[in-house]
């Protein structure tokens, strides 16, 4: 029984991690049809922002929840202004340019921080569920993922910015005629997506540690999750994360983590074959 709870918690926290990793990319893809392949490096920079701030004496929670998203959101704003904006409507070119950015950021981080793992200790200790010890930090990850989903839902469904953003996504020319400036909406959306990536990097930094090449481990998973989910941001990410993380964790438990990873990738391929436009290309159409 305790074992089942522990496995269940692993699965839930696995889903939460995958949601956190991919949600920033999902916002940018869902709203702007832009695939940011430097997304993994945005996470990496969020991790470095957290660790640098924490080592400089800033409260660890402030470093994770505030500094990481702010720093990376700002970087995202700059990237949007100088690269993404010039390539709107050219999906493949955007992917290539952001792939270049990804290499560029890896190179920069290696130059600045060196090619070693930087880390901070997890701020929460273990808790016991029956006889099984679980890291309390996993609960924190789940809480952050839930908070992000609620916040995004409110932002896009309830706020005026959300209304304008969704309108621009549906028909840029029409909303432009109604007085909205699409470039500003895109810039804000991209910054939000980047900030979410930074947040994810900050949250995961105590678990994974941070190296310049950290992003590579995440970007593919995030990319697959977002594409598997389809263009509907929240529902797509949630459903795809749910499927992929469950497959990954269960297969990891049954065999090895490597096979778990392969099972995740394999299930992604099958899913995309059955639903060529992602889960939300077929189900839950028109939601957020």
């Amino acid at each position: 029984m305790d074992y089942l709870i522990a496995v269940g918690l692993e699965v839930v926290s696995g889903i939460a991690s995958l949601v956190l990793i991919s949600i920033g990319l999902a916002v940018v893809f869902g709203m702007m049809k832009v695939i940011n392949l430097a997304h993994g490096e945005f996470l990496m920079m969020g991790g470095y922002a957290t660790i640098t701030a924490a080592n400089a004496g800033v409260n660890i929670w402030v470093s994770i929840l505030l500094i990481a998203p702010l720093v990376v959101g700002l970087i995202g704003l700059i990237v949007e202004r100088f690269v993404i904006r010039r390539l709107y409507g050219r999906v493949i070119d955007t992917m290539l340019a952001t792939w270049g950015l990804s290499l560029l950021f890896i190179g920069l981080a290696t130059t600045v921080f060196g090619n070693t793992t930087a880390g901070i200790s997890s701020p929460l200790g273990p808790v016991n569920i029956g006889h099984v010890g679980v890291s309390a930090y996993k609960f924190f990850i789940v809480a952050v993922a839930l908070a992000v989903i609620v916040a995004l839902y409110s932002l896009f469904k309830l706020s005026r910015f959300g209304l304008v953003a969704r309108a621009t996504m549906q028909n840029a020319a029409m909303s432009s005629a109604l007085g909205v400036e699409p470039p500003r909406v895109y810039a804000a959306t991209f910054a939000i997506g980047s900030a979410l990536a930074g947040l994810a990097g900050g949250v995961l930094a105590p678990i994974t540690g941070v190296v310049p090449s950290l992003g590579a481990a995440f970007v593919a998973k995030a990319f697959i999750t977002v594409i598997g989910g389809g263009s509907t941001v929240l529902v797509g990410t949630l459903s795809a994360s749910g499927i992929f993380a469950t497959v990954n964790q269960l297969a990891s438990f049954a065999t090895t983590p490597v096979i778990g990873e392969v099972a995740l990738l394999g299930s992604a391929i099958i899913l995309l074959r059955l639903l060529p436009h992602g889960i939300t290309g077929r189900f839950f159409k028109g939601r957020i």
């Binding site: 070119d93 340019a97 920069l108």
Partner: peptide, 14 residues
Amino acid sequence: NNNLIMGGILVVVV
């Protein structure tokens, strides 16, 4: 750093 140069080249070319 090699990544720095490759990344820069790719961005500039695109």
